[in-house]
Design a binder for these strands. Structure first.
Lengths: 201, 201
DNA sequence: GTTTATACATTCAAGAATGTATGTAAAGGC
DNA sequence: GCCTTTACATACATTCTTGAATGTATAAAC
């Protein structure tokens, strides 16, 4: 076998991750064989085992890549003129990411529907750090909105943040599921607008 | 082997389903072997194959049992004095079912976190008929609430129903996940109350 | 009272899937 | 120009898992 350069090896690694995503999506993580992944990537199992210790490590590598877009695209601007509008924009941005980042969308579909949370994956079943951070940022944004007086009286910023957090969880799930009830995908923008409007004074 | 009576055979069948639920929960559906199920039920694989054609059929049998409590416990009274309150009560009842029907809760945990939606299970990934029915009932209840004038102006009953539907989806998921962020379980009642209060005029 | 169908247990053959061990040829350091 | 390491491919041994085939004793039907 021809030994590859570092750059070529890195390309191989990415191709394996891409192939894994395709196979995970079609077969589910459990029924995905490293043989299938290797075949889909155009390499042998030897290559897969060279880059990743096992299927779990490959899974986490795929997952890490998919989270990246959220880190710099879903932001809450502290200096926002209208924090409530800012929350709406952040939620819309989540949907936009799912729309135009194919790899991220597919990975989320795998995480949501094609993966069993047992043994070493059990911790992923709970709120991940990223989700808890999101909840914190939501709460802070609602607090700013409360201080600006744009919220309808009654519920606390914490209450509102939790309600929005659960809404987003449900929205992502149903957006990903898509067919046969496509309305959650086509109407996502309107649903978010309504959700935000309910909070305004 | 001693041939069992019909009643004994039916008991065996239920014991197999109970055992399956335990094993599914611990190992995930994919990594559940009919051998493991048989051992947990105190029978051999022969018994399992007698009652169920394969693992999928066993899975559906388990699922069917778990849905039953919802059919007669989650209801929307059309003659309700305060339909908005009625919606709140229905949502609370969902949580109550999860709290006191162990088998149902465990089955929902399996469906949500210990199962991969591929091949013959793919349809289950989408909104099930039961969920769509629930959405319809929600919408009708909100329409009644609108007619009674108890809703805050702005969003349509359809908008509100969708928002609530997504909220419930997120709530159930996070309620089931539980640890390490238990708040969604302990505060479920309050979260529902807030959610409903946001809608009142 | 005989027959038949039931409710399982046991055994078997065959096919995955995994991890590891080994082979190998070229890249890259000195 | 040699040596070591890299980046894989190939081969192997082992361990599940499954479905089906077969065995069997009794309950139930007549």
């Amino acid at each position: 076998m021809v030994r590859k350069t570092k750059e070529e090896a890195d390309l191989t690694r990415r191709q394996i991750i891409d192939a894994a995503r395709r196979v995970f999506l079609e077969c589910g993580v459990s029924h995905t064989t490293l043989e299938k992944v290797a075949a889909a990537a155009g390499v042998t199992r030897g290559a897969v085992y060279w880059h990743f210790r096992n299927k779990t490590e490959l899974f986490f590598a795929m997952r890490e890549q998919a989270i990246l877009p959220f880190i710099d695209r879903v932001v809450f601007d502290e200096a926002d003129e209208d924090p409530l509008q800012g929350i709406g924009t952040a939620l819309q941005e989540i949907i936009h990411i799912l729309e135009d980042q194919v790899a991220t969308r597919e990975t989320f579909e795998i995480i949501s529907f094609k993966c069993e949370y047992v043994r070493e994956l059990t911790p992923m079943m709970y709120c991940t750090d990223g989700q808890l951070t999101f909840l914190t940022q939501l709460t802070d944004a609602y607090r700013r909105a409360a201080r600006k007086g744009v919220l309808r009286p009654g519920p606390t910023p914490e209450d509102l943040a939790h309600d929005t957090f659960l809404f987003v969880g449900g929205l992502i799930k149903h957006w990903l599921a898509g067919r046969p009830d496509e309305r959650f995908r086509t109407d996502a923008v309107a649903l978010i607008r309504t959700h935000i409007a309910l909070r305004r004074a």
